[in-house]
Amino acid sequence: MAASKDNEEASDAPSSPKKVYKDPDDGRQRFLLELEFVQCLANPTYIHYLAQNRYFEDEAFIGYLKYLQYWQRPEYIKFIMYPHCLYFLELLQNANFRNAMAHPANKELAHRQQFFFWKNYRNNRLKHILPRPLPEPSEAPPPAAAPPLPPAPPVLTPVTAAPGPALSPMQYGIPPGSALMKNDMRSSSIDRRKRKKDG
């Protein structure tokens, strides 16, 4: 009977507060681990790996992906270095996308699209960011003036045949018998051929 009284008194006493888990480093380790995982989602190959190993069939993992959407808030997004991870995190909320990423062809398609985005993003963005020059004010057209005359065609003089053998283009303007003519490549090659035949 005394034991039952002690139990009743213990149950009437206010229950002691439950111990709340306190991170030894104030959540820094958890923050870094979640940041690293979220940024891994920028890689379609990693998403394919998760799909191949059936992580997307685990309800707890799907809940974790839903929980990680807090990284889209401004106070956290400033820590993200690879913004594509947030785009893929959003796509991973859809079951069709999770199932599709199990196929290698879809992984390759996502890689190609990501590459084309990176390749053209800056130029496309600059088109919309850079200010366009203002149109010049339209002025009244000047009074009609006579159109400019086309230049006169050059006058061609007839060429008379030079006496003797035709000169090579390299020999024009060089007097025959000069030292320059003797060093001409064509004439020296002809001399060598003649020597071979004679010899």
Rank of each mutant, 00 (worst) to 15 (best):
Q39K: 03
Y64M: 10
Y76I: 02
D26W: 02
Y70W: 06
L126V: 01
P131T: 01
L109R: 11
A95V: 14
E59R: 09
S4T: 04
P137W: 00
M1G: 11
S189Q: 14
N106C: 07
P163Q: 07
L167F: 02
K5D: 10
K78M: 13
P44Q: 06
L68M: 08
L91S: 04
D191W: 02
L130W: 02
P24L: 01
Y64D: 07
V20N: 02
P14V: 05
E8W: 12
P165S: 02
P133N: 08
G63I: 05
K119T: 04
S188M: 15
W118S: 10
A179C: 05
P148W: 03
Y49T: 14
Y70E: 01
K196Y: 08
V20C: 01
A166G: 07
N7H: 06
L89G: 06
A100V: 02
G173R: 00
K5S: 07
N183D: 11
E9T: 11
L149S: 14
M101A: 09
A145H: 09
K119L: 11
K196R: 13
V155D: 09
A166Q: 15
N53A: 02
P137Y: 00
Q69W: 02
Q93K: 09
G27P: 03
L126Y: 03
P83E: 11
D191Q: 13
Y21A: 00
I190M: 09
L89I: 02
Y21Q: 00
E8Q: 12
F116A: 10
V155S: 11
R125F: 12
H48M: 13
N99V: 03
N43C: 13
F37N: 03
A60Q: 13
P141A: 07
P104S: 12
Q39F: 08
N106S: 04
Q114K: 05
F37W: 07
N123W: 01
Y172L: 04
N7K: 11
R186N: 10
F88K: 06
R98H: 03
E36L: 12
A100W: 05
K119A: 10
P169M: 04
F56C: 03
P104F: 07
F61K: 01
L89H: 04
H103I: 04
P135A: 08
P175S: 10
L33P: 00
K194D: 10
N43H: 12
R195K: 15
S138L: 14
T160R: 08
F61G: 01
V159M: 05
A3M: 15
A140Y: 01
K66I: 03
N94T: 03
P104N: 07
Q171S: 10
K197G: 06
V155G: 06
Y46R: 13
H84D: 15
N123A: 05
G199D: 11
R54K: 15
L130R: 14
E108M: 12
G177M: 03
